[in-house]
Simulated assay, not measured.
Amino acid sequence: MAELFIGADTEKTVVSAYPLKTRTGRARRTRTGTVTELLPVTPSGRSREVRVAFLARLSLPLVLVSTLMFAAGLPSWLLAGIILVTVGLAGWDDRRRAQRTTFAIPRDSGARVLRTPEERAAYGRAVAVARRIRQTWPALPGMIDPEVADGTLTHALDDLATLLVRRQEIRALRTGLLGVRMADVPADSPAALALAEQRERTEQLWLDSAGQANRILRSIDETAQAGETFVRELRIGATARQAEHVLARLTAGAPPAESAPELASRTTVVLDAYRELAAAASLVP
């Protein structure tokens, strides 16, 4: 698996080995390793009336400049073309910024589209955990091969997307079979027996797909926790070593412990002697 492109809008999550395109709105690309995430950009919220007014204000200076250029000898068809292209591009971009982001479904057969909330949430969580795993790699130089680890992690996300697409199809089939009413059908009829058999097979597929998906999710979680724990241990060890150096310096430069008691003792002796002299002086007639 070379690369993986992931885009999620309000309707679906698209996973493909090829770059994704937006059907409406805009998206911001974030690349980590061989995984590129496309994150929707918040719409500008500008209404159609506001956009039309903006184009009208833009057209006025263009017409003025074109008039001056026409007077200078430029052909009118060229100036009209420049105005139309400029206004058209500005209007297209303004309209695109105001739209909600939706991703186009790739035409390649290998693209996976997740539409059910449960599968989308599971895959989104896996992508977020994979991002955490990649963030630990710079702190582990020489311990892992980033290229190999990145390929393995991307392959796991690719396998999970394929599995979740299959699981959402099983979910739809399972819901349809469970929704069939058999109140008026004899339990021993061929149709009822066939339906029961298909329900049993579907339920087994449902459980198997859950186990496979959970195994991948659990492995990704454990990898993230192991990496983050080790990074924390490295930081704690570095803090302990730094504290050891500071304590060694402070201990080596510490003043003798007897200095303060000796100073206090001498001060007391001097003050006592001064008091005795003062008392003797007061007794002299």
Rank of each mutant, 00 (worst) to 15 (best):
V185F: 02
Q168F: 06
Q168S: 09
L164I: 08
I133F: 03
E147I: 15
H155N: 08
A126W: 03
A161W: 02
L177N: 09
L173T: 13
R131F: 11
G142K: 04
L153V: 10
R166N: 07
P186N: 01
G176F: 09
R167T: 00
T154N: 08
A139D: 11
A130G: 09
A121I: 01
W137Q: 07
D158R: 13
M143Y: 06
T154V: 06
R171S: 03
T162C: 10
M143W: 07
A122Y: 05
M182N: 02
L177H: 08
A183V: 06
D158S: 14
I133M: 06
A172I: 11
L163W: 07
Q135L: 14
L153R: 05
R125W: 11
Q168N: 04
L153D: 07
R120Q: 10
A126V: 01
P141I: 04
D159Y: 10
T162L: 14
R181N: 13
A130F: 05
R120P: 08
L153E: 13
A172R: 15
R125I: 04
A121H: 10
A156R: 12
A172N: 09
A156W: 08
L160T: 05
D145Y: 09
L164P: 09
R167I: 00
R134D: 10
R120D: 03
A130Q: 07
G142S: 02
R171M: 09
D145T: 05
D158N: 12
A122I: 12
L173Y: 04
G124M: 04
A122Q: 13
L140P: 12
L177C: 13
I144V: 15
V165W: 00
L173D: 14
A126D: 01
L164T: 06
T152N: 15
E169T: 08
R167D: 07
A161K: 06
L163S: 14
L153I: 13
I170R: 02
G142L: 04
M182W: 06
E169R: 12
A126L: 10
R125K: 13
H155W: 06
G176A: 11
D150W: 11
A121N: 10
G151P: 07
G176L: 03
V127A: 11
L153T: 05
T136V: 11
L177T: 12
P146Q: 00
A128S: 12
